[in-house]
Design a binder for these strands. Sequence first.
DNA 1: CCACGTTTGAAACAATTGTTTATAACCAGG
DNA 2: CCTGGTTATAAACAATTGTTTCAAACGTGG
Lengths: 223, 223
Amino acid sequence: MAQNDTVTRILDTAEVLFAERGFAETSLRTITSKAKVNLAAVNYHFGSKKSLIQSVFARYLDPFTERFHGALDELEARYAGKTIPLEELLETMARCVLEVPAERNSLKVFMRLLGLAYSQAQGHLRRYIQEEYGGVFTRFTALIRQATPELPDAERFWRLHFMLGTVIFTLSGLDALRDIAEKDYDEHVTVRDLVRRLRPVVVAAMQAPLPAPAPAPADAQEA
Amino acid sequence: MAQNDTVTRILDTAEVLFAERGFAETSLRTITSKAKVNLAAVNYHFGSKKSLIQSVFARYLDPFTERFHGALDELEARYAGKTIPLEELLETMARCVLEVPAERNSLKVFMRLLGLAYSQAQGHLRRYIQEEYGGVFTRFTALIRQATPELPDAERFWRLHFMLGTVIFTLSGLDALRDIAEKDYDEHVTVRDLVRRLRPVVVAAMQAPLPAPAPAPADAQEA
DNA sequence: CCACGTTTGAAACAATTGTTTATAACCAGG
DNA sequence: CCTGGTTATAAACAATTGTTTCAAACGTGG
């Protein structure tokens, strides 16, 4: 029990600190002292700081992907070859995202971690997540493709990432935004409230009219 | 000229490195060696690393806010008290965002810096930007408010941040996304292409139907 | 009870960080 | 040609970082 206790105590403390301050800004000494374990315990149990970070993600993403795959199985079975409506797909994903972290820590931590992973510049973390958990996302986008046959592939690709940005940005910066919202509109907003607000926006965004065709490239502007 | 040369060479190098690797991950030695200036030059000219970071932002945001204010002046004059349409407001902002960094470095760097500032966890940088440049944004949102009278204030607040997330997330992660898009759909996408794609999505998102009212809070879920 | 693999503990390590210091180079104005 | 303040340079500083080491404590199977 002592070993497991040390490992989970490190993970519990690390994920909170990472979410609060970022990866580079969180030292192993801060983690271990707050977790009341020895400094060397991190390198002993995880090997390195980098691998600790990945373990923090794995503890969220492993149960998520499993549950998400299951939910998609159930959905495909229910629709038996018929194309699943867009709302249903989004709803299912939202439900899985909400359910998994609710069992342990707050969803806020999970989203903040995801946001950090994406903003990590050189992106070896994003690559790890892509390689390890890209499967469900590929499966999900294939179903989205069937649900939005009117969209050109490239257009759908970009719109999905537009919405990914919306969700990650909003939920990962939730604390700051919530403070403003509470002060200015005195309403205490929960994550579920946000998902409720997100739903019509995401649907409308995905179903927005196609953009005007690109103008003739008179002089190409480098990006 | 020598002084100015050192200062701008530090800023030019720092903004690129910051955008590529983040703030904490970029050391002053990396900056100064790449900029071919002495290590102490940063502390001499800027005082500290933190203040160098702020200077990097100021060099983008000062001309941007000036130009944006001017554009809003011109818009208000043109509409002479009448409410400015939403599309026009968005168009104006997009134009200013596109024009300013085009004069010097790439827009990509600017957006990546903005994304980093927002994902910076403890957020003293976000606070600095808010205090220093919050004015234009307040003015802009007031105009947006007139353009979308059907939206409750809180709803508009959240939707604006949804869209802010879309823009920052997409444009700050542009390189990675562009690689995927080019590989999968072999289309070379420029920033202007993205803005063209963004336009109908943002408009549709802002005009999406209101969400269903919150269900009775049977058991409150902590966030 | 003993012995052995596993886990913890305190300390030290080597490397890197931002910042400061003291000296030298520069470059105008008298 | 000095002289004054401004800028550049090299070196050192103190603090912090991730990682390693090695001995002590632990706990379980013989």
